[in-house]
């Protein structure tokens, strides 16, 4: 277990440094690092501190959030298909964010954007849980997710199409596929408080999720308050997914792929899957963001494109496995 932790941490650190050093502008790696650490008052210092650092930080924060919330939802629903992107939580958060931007709420006060996205995410989680039920089968969960995410995506498109701003309609792609392009420290500051809250809540559910693997009665007998557990998972997920989506749009499949890959290494223990998925999610999003910057630097290739290319086949594989188990 400790070896896994060390490997994942090393991976995140290496990718984080690579994300800082690689970019569309050719910069000397050593000079860049010096400029960043000394917060040099040069243009290179500006580029490092105001462009690359926030982007790399957001990749870590958002990747960790998505991995963590995926692992938590899967543990709570005891279903390997639960993923905030797949079941429509991210799409509802995007609707909340778009509403905040288009109504002027985001401009009126700074926290309007993440708060509105959080509210959207909360509505999304509650809707899916209500539709699928707390112990719904994989099928009802996915169907409920499709309903919520397609409705939220349609409403997002509608709001953007109705906007008088000529750029808004083109941004549908951003909200559906996600990107970290041109984000700044302002966005780090907007997302961080909500994410920290969500991380604390989701980080605290490990014991409860472990107990839940024995069944609800056994968990209650072990002193787990299921009501509290449920509330922590719901609010924690809404907080981290809301904050992530508000600044980077919907990035799918991270919460599905990462726990799936890491599950065998932690002996399928939900509590261990939580922290390892957070690290794994951070690594995956860093790698994806480095790739989009290297492959098509001037085109702003969306992150969701990459994560879906990796995630969709895995999703197929998972469905296949789940079907075989239920037969």
């Amino acid at each position: 277990m400790r070896r896994l932790a060390l490997i994942l941490i090393a991976l995140v650190v290496v990718l984080f440094v690579a994300a800082l050093l690689l970019g569309p502008a050719d910069t000397d790696p050593w000079q860049s690092l010096v400029a960043l650490i000394t917060r040099e008052e040069s243009l290179l210092g500006l580029v490092m501190y105001e462009i690359r650092l926030p982007r790399a930080l957001l990749a870590v924060m958002i990747g960790a959030s998505l991995g963590l919330s995926g692992a938590a939802m899967q543990g709570y629903l005891r279903n390997p298909l639960a993923d905030p992107g797949l079941i429509g939580v991210s799409a509802s958060a995007a609707l909340g964010a778009v509403l905040a931007i288009q109504t002027g709420l985001a401009a009126a006060f700074a926290l309007g954007l993440p708060l509105s996205a959080l509210a959207g995410a909360l509505v999304g989680v509650l809707l899916v849980l209500a539709l699928a039920g707390p112990r719904g089968s994989s099928l009802t969960l996915i169907l409920a997710g499709i309903v919520v995410s397609s409705l939220a995506a349609a409403l997002t498109s509608l709001v953007l199409n109705l906007s008088p701003n000529p750029f808004a309609a083109n941004e549908i792609v951003f909200w559906m596929m996600g990107s970290l392009a041109d984000r700044s420290m302002v966005h780090v500051g907007l997302a961080l408080p909500f994410m920290v809250m969500g991380w604390l809540l989701l980080g605290g559910v490990g014991r409860g999720l472990d107990a839940l693997t024995l069944g609800e009665d056994a968990a209650e007998a072990m002193g787990i308050n299921l009501m509290v557990l449920r509330l922590m998972v719901v609010i924690g997920t809404a907080a981290v997914v809301g904050a992530s989506t508000a600044v980077a749009g919907v990035i799918g499949f991270v919460g599905l792929v990462v726990p799936h890959i890491l599950r065998p290494f932690v002996g399928a223990r939900p509590s261990a899957l939580l922290w390892s998925s957070a690290l794994g999610g951070a690594a995956m999003l860093l790698a994806a963001d480095i790739t989009v910057r290297l492959v098509l630097p001037s085109k702003d290739l969306k992150l969701g494109v990459l994560t879906a290319i990796i995630g969709a086949p895995l999703f197929l594989h998972l469905i296949h496995k789940v079907r075989k188990m239920s037969v």
Binding site: I51, S163, N165, F167, N170
Partner: peptide
């Protein structure tokens, strides 16, 4: 600037 907000125009407010 065009009326109403857009993420596309946010780049013009970027600290850089």
């Amino acid at each position: 600037r065009y009326p109403a907000a857009s993420r596309s125009e946010e780049i013009l407010d970027h600290p850089v």
